Simulated assay, not measured.
Amino acid sequence: MDASDQSKLSLTERRKETTRLEISHRAAELFSDAQAESVTADSIAKASGVGLRTFYRYFRTKEDAIAPLLENGVGDWLNLIESTPASVSIGVTLEQAARRSFTELRTSTENVALVRRLLRVVVHDPALLNVWLRVVNDTEIKLISVLETRMRPGTDPLEIQLFAVAANTAQRMAISAWVHGAEPESAENEPVDIAVRCLRILTAGLDTDAHA
């Protein structure tokens, strides 16, 4: 959940969201530092300073606890797309959002190293990978809703879905390059450039000038 959403919550809801994110942070640390099978809901709860019953009020399984941390960056990216003026073409909007999100990722230190460590572990554990793929799928669904408000009335719903799939896939591939790669030796290997290149390839043939 991003800052703009948090501002709309009541004090009780904000406290719950803070607790949820704290548990997620501790879960990510444990999964990043140990074998997944050795991490338990109880160990996550203890590291978070909450009881096991409290943990299960927030999460169904131990693996689900990593979702909020992964969703945070996604929310920021969607906000960048949604806040771009409608006069800007959708193609430019998606590229600008990709560039800004990765620029902010580069300059931010909060949670960035942890997310990178976590995602390097996620791909080797089916249960954790399932959570990450669920976050990716949920992002695509949310992105369709965002694009529906930005593209011109009457735009073919299939084209909106294709834009969402293209943007989501490009971002996911760029994140994968950032997570698993070493520091790039050339600009063309920068994650943001991978995202933009993928966007252009995947949206070729679509009306990238379409806007509301």
Rank of each mutant, 00 (worst) to 15 (best):
L133A: 13
L162H: 08
E13T: 07
I175R: 09
A167V: 00
W77M: 09
D125F: 04
V122R: 00
I66E: 00
S176P: 02
A127S: 13
A34L: 08
G154H: 05
S48C: 05
L162S: 12
P184H: 01
E63V: 11
S83Q: 13
A65M: 06
L129H: 11
S32Q: 03
L9C: 12
L11S: 15
S38Y: 00
R120E: 14
F31Y: 15
A174F: 05
V179I: 12
T61G: 06
F55D: 04
D156M: 00
A204H: 15
V165R: 12
A174K: 05
V92Q: 14
T40C: 09
V50M: 06
R99S: 01
S4V: 12
G51Y: 03
A28C: 15
Q96A: 12
L78T: 07
E63Y: 13
R172K: 13
V121S: 06
V88L: 11
I90E: 02
E29F: 01
D209F: 12
R200E: 14
L162N: 10
D209C: 08
A28F: 04
L129P: 01
A210C: 12
E17R: 13
R150G: 09
V115K: 12
S4R: 13
G49S: 11
M151K: 00
N79Y: 09
A67N: 08
K62P: 03
L129R: 15
